[in-house]
Design a protein around this nucleic acid. Structure first.
Lengths: 89, 89
DNA sequence: ATTAATTATGGCACTTGTGCTATAATTAGA
DNA sequence: TCTAATTATAGCACAAGTGCCATAATTAAT
């Protein structure tokens, strides 16, 4: 099999790894402050534990719904999920 | 062709339509307050206009990176994107 | 040092977010 | 009313988020 052919058109994808990383660290800190395990968060949020782990290790770029589910589970305002310093670029 | 077969296992998907809708309304309001067109926002954020339109019409559930790109483009703090009332459930 | 609890990884299937392009629909300006 | 500007929709291709399952790795308790 040939290598998968790259599209001739360069698609610009936006994935701010640094911001995702900063968010990951913040979330993990928040969760611990609330004495919550990933397992509990799974239960409270309805998200899967593997997903939560992947978010906290910055493997993925979660969606709005996911963020809101987490905030609800932690009983905090969604805006609190963003109380962290964004890397400059 | 047969209809696509449903997986035997019921996958629970989380997509909080009401929250996404509330966010959409809030974003559109914010953008207008900043006298910003979708076209300008496309330029400033690097996101595609079609994507912005889909977000503002609550067609999609944007990702964290997308939200941050929008906040940066509007020169606001990401938490401001969440200054809206979440529907109760 | 063992064991239990917690967190992280990996793979698969499926869904969906995104870019790109084009076009339609709506709104604003003349 | 025309016209231009703005916003919304649609379809395609591809990337990536998520659930579920299993297992490995790490950390905490005893």
């Amino acid at each position: 099999m040939n290598k998968r052919q790259k599209s001739s058109i360069e698609r610009k994808l936006i994935f701010d790894e640094k911001a995702v990383k900063a968010f990951a660290i913040h979330l993990k800190k928040l969760r611990k402050e609330y004495k919550c395990t990933q397992d509990q968060l799974e239960f409270e949020s309805g998200l899967s534990l593997s997903q939560i782990a992947r978010i906290e290790t910055a493997k993925i770029n979660p969606t709005l719904s996911t963020l809101i589910a987490i905030a609800k589970a932690l009983e905090i305002k969604p805006s609190e999920l963003f109380n962290f310093e964004l890397p400059d670029k």
